[in-house]
Design a protein around this nucleic acid. Structure first.
Lengths: 338, 338
DNA sequence: CCCTGAAGCTATAACGTTATAGATGTCCAC
DNA sequence: GTGGACATCTATAACGTTATAGCTTCAGGG
């Protein structure tokens, strides 16, 4: 398809002009559907443009026309930010304040390849650096950016995290601490509701399970067929269905606050009382589960600091590509438990 | 200060070159701290640049150097988005998918003039359109953008909303419906926890209070010295302090989910039981308060649709500046109540 | 007094795009 | 066969920036 392109060449109007034998201005006007260009030419130009994958250079358009093709969302930074995403973005934006950098949000839709937005940004030069989360051990986005030496920082480690900037919460320790805490309350049979499988921190939590089993000698295992990002209804439904199966756990370790709510709700429907038959331990960024049920045990995680670190890390990766990448690992201890 | 500038002129390197008598290239190199420019010149250029308020044109830099000065945050769009901000952004991004527009997030810090980010974007041409929320009746940001004919859309109406694009939830009807619902449960003395004063939807809710009083004949009033965006701790503290004062309300209408949690918590600490001595009615975007206390009465508000509408509205404002602005008002009815 | 080298500045070109004015060719009317 | 109208395309310039090469000036050595 792209056989007309010189290798590594980013197609511009000039490319299309060369391939079509037309002038750059004509190509521009043809693509812009100007009235004084013949239909034939328009079709021909359009075809070549598609063939070579032409995408208008935003800087060129912007410089010439003043059009930025950007929509700006003004996000009020509230003091009592109860909101994970808002908090993360605010802290990134806050750290970026005073630098030349602007923050752009690119959605990654569940129905598309996770690599797509990353590739789009890298190939079209839409940013100097990228921040991603939900990392996998062999994350293809990370592999892609490392190969191209494109600056980035990840929330969550990967198989190559020695070599790139990241911030991570030590989820292995999270699990062992939680298990220890529950064991201290006399709990004997624990179940862990993990994040979706494949994610790096899911693996870390699985390691934590094994470590807790080995070192503390407790009966602890992951819940199968269920993960912490499922909708509350699904989690509830699972507990209903599983009534007949093994429900003898007396301790739950839950990876996300929403899942925790769903689990507690399901347990209570079965007549179980928190702090009596069962104890529940969850991770939480914002102090709110304590209002839901004060008996829930919590490990706090500071999202604001995550954003701050990631912003610094990616800026460093941009400015000093050869320096040692900025890496941060927050290892929780007993004082993190509420 | 800016007396050297022609009116309306956006300072560029050329401007500084003209004012300093140096060549454009020299100015560029002086500001870039190049080694072959004398210290004197650097100081002089820097001073003039500051004086005229020079800010490098991002498109120029980007075109020349390839540097975008943009950091991109990849935001995974989860299906069970439990998160107001993330949901809003996802729906905006979703609506923008397939258009040429990118979404940029500009924070508005509580310690700075709300007009600042808007002015920054407009003056420096950093976007083609702006979306704002937390509007006031005589919102200075709206006045600013209207005066300059800069495309925008607001979440929440203003005093001039006939003339601009907006989406709003009918908060007046929200209050009257809630009051009617509580009255139907036999509640006689209602209190409303409003959003911070000055916001347009706060005024709407106040109108709703008066209408409910007049039309339903119920005893209903706003809670003073307290608003729904305060931290949970503050709300709790207020209820403690106010023990001695009037606590005879039997119905509460709360403007935000977090405040609702705090209020219910405070009430329960006083031994009050939901659905018995007191009923509580709240607004909610995500189905979660029902897990907290199933007795809470809810009016649902679809944040996803808000984002979709706002995105369409601002795109229309950009593409067809003279068309009638896109406006949407969601008027709740009994079926919105859960 | 010429040559060299350094310091300090500038002219030019280029990044990719599009608005403007102009060029070329065709066709028809007179 | 000349003029004009029209359709279609192109050359040029400009947006703001910076890398590159080159220019000027001056001091100091020979």
């Amino acid at each position: 398809m792209k056989r007309h392109l010189k290798p590594g060449e980013k197609p511009t109007l000039k490319t299309i002009a060369r391939l079509s034998g037309l002038a750059v201005a004509t190509v521009s006007r043809a693509l812009g559907d100007a009235p004084d260009i013949s239909a034939d030419t328009k079709v021909k130009v359009r075809r070549i443009a598609d063939e070579v994958g032409y995408i208008p250079n935003r800087a060129g358009v912007r410089l010439r026309t003043g059009r930025t093709n950007v929509i700006s969302l003004i996000l009020p930074v509230e003091s009592n930010m109860t909101n994970h995403t808002a908090k993360l973005q605010s802290s990134i934006a806050h750290e970026l304040r005073g630098t030349q950098f602007h923050l752009n949000v690119t959605p990654q839709f569940p129905d598309e390849d996770p690599l797509k937005p990353v590739r789009y940004i890298v190939e079209n030069g839409l940013a100097d650096g990228i921040i991603i989360n939900s990392t996998r051990a062999d994350d293809e986005r990370v592999a892609y950016m490392m190969e191209r030496k494109f600056p980035f920082a990840t929330h969550g480690r990967t198989g190559w995290s020695d070599a790139h900037a990241y911030f991570d919460f030590d989820n292995q320790t999270f699990v062992t601490l939680a298990a220890k805490h529950l064991a201290g309350l006399g709990r004997k049979r624990m179940k862990v509701l993990l994040p979706p499988s494949g994610l790096n921190y899911t693996n870390d939590m699985m390691t934590g399970i094994i470590m807790a089993r080995d070192m503390l000698g407790v009966d602890i295992q992951a819940m199968s067929n269920l993960h912490a990002e499922m909708a509350a209804e699904q989690i509830s439904a699972w507990f209903e269905d599983a009534k007949s199966s093994d429900q003898t756990a007396d301790g739950y370790i839950i990876s996300s606050p929403m899942a925790c709510i769903a689990v507690v709700d399901a347990l209570e429907r079965q007549g179980v009382k928190l702090g009596q038959e069962v104890d529940v331990f969850s991770r939480e960024a914002i102090p709110f589960l304590k209002y839901f049920r004060p008996q829930i045990h919590l490990m706090r995680e500071d999202v604001g600091w995550v954003g701050t670190h990631l912003a610094r890390a990616v800026v460093q990766a941009i400015r000093a590509p050869n320096a040692k990448p900025l890496q941060g690992l927050e290892v929780p201890n007993e004082t993190y438990i509420r």
